[in-house]
Simulated scan of single mutants.
Amino acid sequence: MAGKRLLMLVGDFGEDYEIMVPFQALTMVGHEVHAVCPDKKKDQTIKTAIHDFEGDQTYTEKPGHRFTLNADFDSVDESSYDGLVIAGGRGPEYIRLNQRVLEITRHFADADKPIAAICHGAQVLAAADVIRGKRLSAYPACAPEVRLAGGEYADIGMDEAVTDGKLVSAPA
Rank of each mutant, 00 (worst) to 15 (best):
R147V: 15
N98C: 07
P114N: 07
A116S: 12
Q123G: 03
A126S: 13
F73M: 10
A116M: 03
A87K: 03
L97Y: 04
G88M: 11
G55W: 02
D52V: 15
D56P: 00
I115Q: 05
R90Q: 13
A149R: 12
R90D: 12
G83Y: 01
Y139A: 13
A127E: 13
Y81C: 03
A111L: 06
V85N: 02
N70E: 03
D56H: 11
I118K: 06
G83R: 06
D56V: 11
E54T: 15
L84M: 02
H120F: 01
P114S: 07
D77Y: 01
F108A: 10
G150A: 08
G121E: 04
S75G: 10
A87T: 15
S79T: 15
K134S: 12
H120A: 08
R132A: 14
D52H: 09
D82Y: 01
F108Q: 05
Q99P: 11
I118D: 02
L136I: 15
R135C: 12
P63E: 14
P63N: 00
G64K: 12
Q99C: 04
Y59E: 15
D129Y: 01
G133W: 07
S75R: 12
R147W: 01
A111N: 03
K62H: 15
R90K: 14
G88C: 08
C119W: 02
L97M: 10
V124D: 04
L97D: 11
I115H: 02
E78P: 00
